[in-house]
């Protein structure tokens, strides 16, 4: 874009009044872990569904000393991650990084970094549909009552159906969790592989849904339990092979289609994790390839 976009706009795009309003919502969300706090979401210069909630949360908490990392699908160089990172570079001038350990704020869509987060870090999730009961009950008035009365039996009906039909719980992402033993929460469409990372994380986790105008939070060291049955316990997605590039196992992998004859390769979804490992000398089966 040719125009000097940042001039004429406040630090981090939003005006200070709006940021204070959003910070109040964030504080309330932290005080009631897992509860969806309505907030007056603003129009943002990117479309709804592309991270407007996460961007508003980040814009409200970011300061000049922060170091920002933005990932989408675990990767720093996917189009949307690049776009949002550039947005903050332009509107705040803060330092950005791809290294998970160096970031103070990590905005993410669909993944939690593989490297454990630490105290003082904030993970900001972009959330499309914040209501975990939405696809069982479309009406907001009814779902709010269900949360108020802690009526979560319906969610288990869904899991029961999965087992009855497929032999196990067939929810592989957006897998519902109970937060601090009280609120049923949607972890955003992260693969369920990442659910255990939310449990008692040292980092503050903030969730922003712009179109649906909701903010919710998991304070550090909060219990986050994935729903399940005693005889069908929660399990994370597993992969048969390690990362073809860095040899990591126990990480989430992307499937890359190599040709139309079915050849495929599995590589780390968290690109920073993969690059760090390779820099440390780890190699996978296809270690010299560049994806």
């Amino acid at each position: 874009m040719n125009a000097p976009a940042a001039s004429g706009y406040n630090f981090a795009y939003l005006d200070e009044q709006t940021k204070r309003m959003i910070r109040r919502a964030i504080l309330k969300a932290i005080a009631i872990p897992g509860y969806q706090v309505p907030f007056a979401s603003r129009e943002m210069p990117m479309p709804y569904g592309w991270g407007t909630g996460g961007v508003q949360v980040t814009a409200s908490i970011i300061g000049e000393d922060d170091v920002l990392k933005v990932i989408d699908q675990g990767s720093d160089d996917t189009t949307n991650a690049v776009s949002i990172r550039k947005f903050f570079e332009k509107t705040t001038g803060v330092a950005t990084t791809t290294a998970t350990g160096e970031a103070t704020i990590i905005q993410t869509r669909h993944r939690i970094p593989e490297a454990p987060l630490t105290e003082g870090q904030v993970l900001v999730y972009q959330v499309p549909i914040p209501e975990p009961l939405r696809f069982l009950e479309p009406r907001e008035t009814e779902t709010r009552t269900m949360h108020a009365l802690e009526e979560y039996g319906l969610m288990h009906v869904k899991l029961y159906e999965d087992i009855a039909r497929h032999g196990h719980i067939a929810t592989s992402y957006d897998y519902p969790v109970m937060v601090a033993g009280r609120y049923l929460m949607d972890p955003s469409p992260t693969p369920k592989f990442d659910n255990p990372k939310m449990h008692r994380s040292a980092a503050l986790q903030l969730f922003g849904a712009g179109r649906e105008k909701r903010i919710y939070a998991i304070p550090p060291y909060t219990d986050v339990v994935s729903l399940d049955f005693e005889d069908h316990p929660f399990e994370v997605n597993r992969f048969d092979t390690p990362c073809a590039l860095c040899g990591a196992s126990g990480v989430y992998l992307d499937e890359v289609v190599l040709d139309d004859r079915g050849r495929r390769m599995f590589v780390c979804s968290d690109t920073d994790h993969c690059e760090t490992r390779r820099a440390d000398g780890h190699r996978g089966a296809d270690g010299d390839a560049t994806p």
């Binding site: 009526e151 979560y152 039996g153 319906l154 288990h156 009906v157 029961y160 159906e161 087992i163 009855a164 039909r165 399940d228 049955f229 005693e230 005889d231 069908h232």
Partner: peptide, 25 residues
């Protein structure tokens, strides 16, 4: 609930009361 199985229809109240053992339900 017309779109969920007979078993889940019968089990719903049990799950609402906190039963969490699929086999028992």
């Amino acid at each position: 609930r017309m779109r969920v199985s007979a078993g889940a229809n019968v089990g719903e109240r049990l799950m609402a009361l906190g039963q969490r053992h699929y086999g028992d339900i």
